[in-house]
Structure formats: C-alpha cells, structure tokens
Design a protein around this nucleic acid. Structure first.
Lengths: 188, 188
DNA sequence: ACCTGAACACCGTTCAAGT
DNA sequence: ACCTGAACACCGTTCAAGT
C-alpha cells in the first residue's frame, strides 16, 4: 500500500516503514493522533531516528496511516456516481463517509483541517478529498437538490466539523441527528 | 472578578491567583489554550507549584480565564429575551455569541466540549451555557421558527463545532456562510 | 496558609557513530 | 543508504523546605 513518493527504497527500509505505519495505526486507534511517537517507534521495533527519517512531521505519518482509507473513499465516489445509485442519497452518504473517515482516530479531524490549508502529504490528501467532494456535488447539483453556492471545500469542512462534534459525543446518540441538520442546511 | 468558590483567600494568594489568570489569558490569546503552564507561571511571577495550587488542572485555569466572557453571555441572554429584541434574530445572534466565545482562544472549543460531559469548573460553565441556550430556545420555539426537536445541548454543541471550523479558517471568509447553513438546518 | 523552586518524568527531535 | 540510540530540550507535575 501507499507507494512512497520518491525513489525505490531498500528492502529493510520498506519493512521498517510499513512497521511504523502499522504501529501508528494501532496507536492512533487507541490514543488518537497525538499518541507518543516514541511509543510508536518502540512498538514498531525501530529507533526514533528511523521514524523521523521516513516521516519528518507527525502530519506525514498521519497521511501514511490514512492512505488505505482514502483509497476506499476514491472507490466510494465511483459507486456514488453510478446512475443506479439513488441521487437523493448521494450527498448524505458521501458526507457520512467523509465524517466517518475523519472520525477514525481521535483528533484526526483537527489534523486534517489544519493540514488542508498547507502543504505536505496530508495537505495533498485534503485537496484530493475536496476535489472528490466537488465531483459528487456536481452530480447532485444537476438534480437541484443542493444550494448552488455550496462548494466542495464547504462540504469538506462541515463534514470534518461533524466528525469533530461526534468525537466529543462517545455515545454517538445524536450523530445522525446532526448529520440531518447539516443536510437540511445545505439542501435547496 | 470570579469569586473563588471556597473560603476567603489570603491577600497574597488573591494577588497571585489574579496574576496567573491574567497571564493565562494573554498566553491563550497568543498561543491557544495549550500554552505552556510553565510560561504562564513565569510571566505571572509565581512558581509552578502556585499555579497548580490554584488550578489543579488546565481545565480549571481555562474556566477561570473565561469567567468574564461567561458573565457577558449571561447579560446577553437578558437582552435577547427582551420583547423589543426582534425574535427572528434571537437564535442567530445567540449562536454567533456562543461560537465567538468558544473562538476566543485557539483550541477552546475542544476544551469546552471535552469538559461539557464531565465534572470540574469548566464542566459547570458548560452546563450553565447549555441552560442559557435552552432559555433562549424556549422563546424562539414559541414563535415557531425552530424545529421543536432541537434542544439546548444540540445548539451548544453545534455552535462549538462552528467555532472549531472557524478556528481553522483564519481568513474567516466563510464563517457567516456556515452560520447561515446551521441556522437553516435547525429552522422549522 | 501559602509560596518557592528543585527534582523527576515524559516525550519530541537531532545527530554522531555504526552497518 | 539506512539504522541505532544516546543526548538534549521542553514542559507537565510533585513535594520537601521555607515564610
């Protein structure tokens, strides 16, 4: 997964990189994206220097940890843009996917929105997700079900705000309700 | 301001406490609510132990730092509930006040929502703000302008989500737009 | 009753030395 | 080309000693 952007890596480097990403995912699930890098390196069986070599910033490590999830979102767009998929559900389902994605790890929505206005690997992921959102919106706009002054970035930001709110509501009792409010807000 | 809950404090303790709160406010404005406590203590001219004596947790210090702001919100409710205040603006204006309050310091919305489900001085503030929100809603409901399944806590959470989103949008270009979307979402 | 500041712990980050 | 781990810095938190 997640082909490293640069030139081919030595075999042991590939192994270490993967081990770090896997350890990061486990740590992020358990303790959120602010989990100690020291612990991640240790449970991956590498020194801190190796972690930093592969991921100069925490944001880069987060980007690698969510790569699989982004791939799923890409495939979801293909499904959503299929004619057989009911157009009245498309936007709601996409927003739910987006906010679930940003709710995968504690604090992820924060890192995502912080990165979206900047460079870096996570920033690029954000821009791709905004573009995917815009692609979904294009189809929905044609049905006249959504305000035409809503752009992909708006929906992306609001889906993350939803994820953020849900993250502070462990029961999740009102998550669907908040989604409904958001959908009403952007409906035409 | 902010009468300490317990028994009367010695004069030097009062002075130190106030100095810490003032230093905290400055630090929170500049660096957000995660500003180093060490720096706050230093710029207040006290040792770290003194800071901890008055504020056992960071959340307690944040609560003290926002006391004035909460007082303003209490007065605002009195104004909003005046018959002369146009009922169609009441809810929007209240939500804006709430989200501005949680946008006063970087990361404040996070601390607020984290505290709202727990105890502590900040948790109590949250519960008061939810009650104030419910009081505002009561009047607005009578006008039939708001969904009747929306409760104070919902609006409080959503206003904080708004503050959170605005905090990641330094230009603030779309802040009013997001407020409008939220108001449409909870309108009847 | 309150304050001080040394002390410890935790963790992010770098870098010289290794293979 | 990559890895290791010691080293340093920063900061949260506690506590013995002071007034």
């Amino acid at each position: 997964m997640s082909a490293p952007a640069g030139r081919p890596l030595r075999a042991d480097a590939v192994r270490n990189r993967n081990a770090v990403v896997q350890a990061a995912r486990r740590a992020f699930v358990d303790r959120g994206v602010e989990a100690p890098l020291e612990d991640i390196a240790k449970s991956a069986g590498v020194g801190p220097g190796t972690l930093y070599r592969h991921f100069p910033t925490r944001s880069d490590l987060i980007a690698a940890a969510v790569e699989d999830h982004v791939e799923e979102l890409r495939r979801a767009v293909d499904r959503l843009n299929t004619p057989s998929y009911d157009a009245s559900d498309v936007l709601r389902d996409w927003v739910r996917l987006l906010s679930d994605y940003s709710g995968a790890y504690g604090g992820l929505a924060d890192s995502v929105l912080a990165a979206s206005s900047r460079g870096g690997s996570l920033g690029e992921i954000c821009r791709e997700l905004e573009d995917l959102t815009e692609a979904v919106l294009k189809r929905v706009r044609a049905t006249g079900r959504v305000r035409d002054d809503v752009v992909g970035e708006d929906v992306f930001v609001l889906a993350n705000a939803l994820a953020w709110a849900n993250g502070h509501d462990p029961e999740g009792v009102r998550a669907d309700y908040r989604l409904e409010i958001l959908m009403r807000g952007i409906a035409n």
